[in-house]
Computed example of a mutant assay.
Amino acid sequence: MDKFGEFLEYLKENDIKKAVITRKENITYFLERYPPNFSILIFDSNHDKVTLQVSKLDFEMSKDYKNKNLDIELYENFENTFKGCIGLEDTLPIKFLKFVEKYTIISKKIDEMREIKSKAEIQNIKTAAKISDEAIEFGTNYAFENDCVTENQVAAEIEYFMKEKGSIRPSFDTIAISNKKTRLPHGMPSKDIVKNILLMDIGALYEGYCSDITRTVILNENIQKYSEVYDVVKSAKLEAEKNLKAGISVKELDLVARDHMGEFKEYFIHSLGHGVGVEVHESPTISSKIKEDIILKEGMVITIEPGIYTDDFGVRIEDLYLVKKNGFEKLSNAKILKY
């Protein structure tokens, strides 16, 4: 059964005759490609019908989306769109509730469906990962080959490179930070000159699907200062990989990496990883601190990204993985270079 069929069956089972999807990421998920700029997806379980509503501006291009399971319709007004609707996302702007008499939240079902990737989704993620692989290797070489380059320049060159390779846009704001700023997990690039150590966390967006990869490289000759921390992070990542397969719990996987860090684990201040798909951060969260434990399933796509952040600098290494029955397939394959 395809995604449309599975969701229509869910609506029937819960006596939801009409559901309206407005969140772009969810529309991307059902279409398995990036949707027109103005898009509304309507599920009619009474007639087993799915309709994509678009504006006049996008109507011509949207004809390419039409298939035997999907009709294309010109949007008229929100009152008509929501008429008779019961199923809504929990992210729906409150301004639309005036068009609905009663509603049932359907987001949990969509989130559950999104956890397991189809063949088409996996291929899109693989393409996005290939783009970011090449881009982060390009960014590394760019930083080594150019003196007095700024963090902003590295970030901009990486984003331009990904665009050239087919990325719609970055899957999140590109991180390219150096020196003491690397101790900030979400530090943002600036006009600061790149020096000493460089952390790049980047992602491409291909057909609405994300990649996510991080590399940290040592740029100066004072390798010893950074080397021990770097090696601990790399080793913790490899330890997590040894245990990664369908059936392991996210809490256990997180603790495997965290405990492997020994005295450095207090400096590992975020979760081990997260799901990736139409959003760069989606379910499941790979963490030992979540309330409800989650068991990894075959077909999930996740990151593993241990990091250590001292008072002087930080190191993070991140890759993308497809969970399999007896292991995993590594989807990001850029070289891991210490220096």
Rank of each mutant, 00 (worst) to 15 (best):
E241H: 13
K234W: 07
H270L: 15
L238R: 15
S271G: 14
E266I: 01
R258K: 15
V232E: 12
L244K: 02
H270V: 10
Y226F: 14
E228I: 07
A240T: 10
L238G: 00
E221M: 03
E241Q: 14
K234A: 07
N243W: 00
G262L: 07
T216Y: 02
D254F: 01
L253F: 02
I218E: 12
L255M: 10
E252N: 06
E266T: 00
K245F: 07
K225C: 00
V229C: 10
I223M: 05
V229M: 09
K237Q: 14
Y230F: 15
I223W: 10
L255Y: 00
V256M: 02
K265M: 03
L244E: 07
S249Y: 06
A257H: 10
L255G: 03
L253M: 06
G247E: 02
V233M: 07
A246K: 11
E228C: 07
N222I: 06
E228V: 09
K245I: 06
I218H: 02
E263L: 06
G262F: 02
S227P: 01
N222F: 08
K251G: 10
L219H: 01
I218P: 14
V217K: 05
F268N: 08
K251T: 05
H270W: 09
L238H: 14
L219C: 01
V233I: 09
S249Q: 03
K242S: 15
V229L: 00
V250K: 12
R258M: 12
K237G: 06
F264S: 11
Y267R: 06
R258I: 11
Y226I: 11
L253R: 05
S271I: 11
E266D: 04
E239N: 09
H270E: 14
S249E: 05
H260D: 10
D254E: 05
A246F: 02
N220M: 00
A240N: 13
V256T: 04
K237W: 15
A246H: 07
H260Y: 08
V217I: 15
K237N: 09
H270S: 12
I248G: 05
K265S: 07
G247A: 03
H260V: 03
E241K: 14
N222A: 08
I248T: 06
Y267Q: 14
E266A: 01
A257K: 13
V232G: 11
E252W: 00
K225R: 13
Y267F: 11
M261P: 07
F264G: 12
K251F: 03
D231I: 02
L244T: 04
H270T: 13
I218M: 08
G262Y: 05
K237V: 01
F268C: 08
E252F: 01
L219W: 02
G262M: 03
Y226C: 12
L253C: 03
L244W: 09
K251H: 09
F268L: 04
L219S: 02
L244C: 08
E228A: 11
K234Y: 14
D231W: 05
H270F: 12
E239A: 15
S235W: 01
I223K: 15
M261K: 02
K242G: 11
F268S: 08
N243Y: 14
F264I: 00
V229H: 00
I248A: 05
E239M: 13
K265W: 01
R258Q: 11
S249N: 10
N220T: 06
M261E: 03
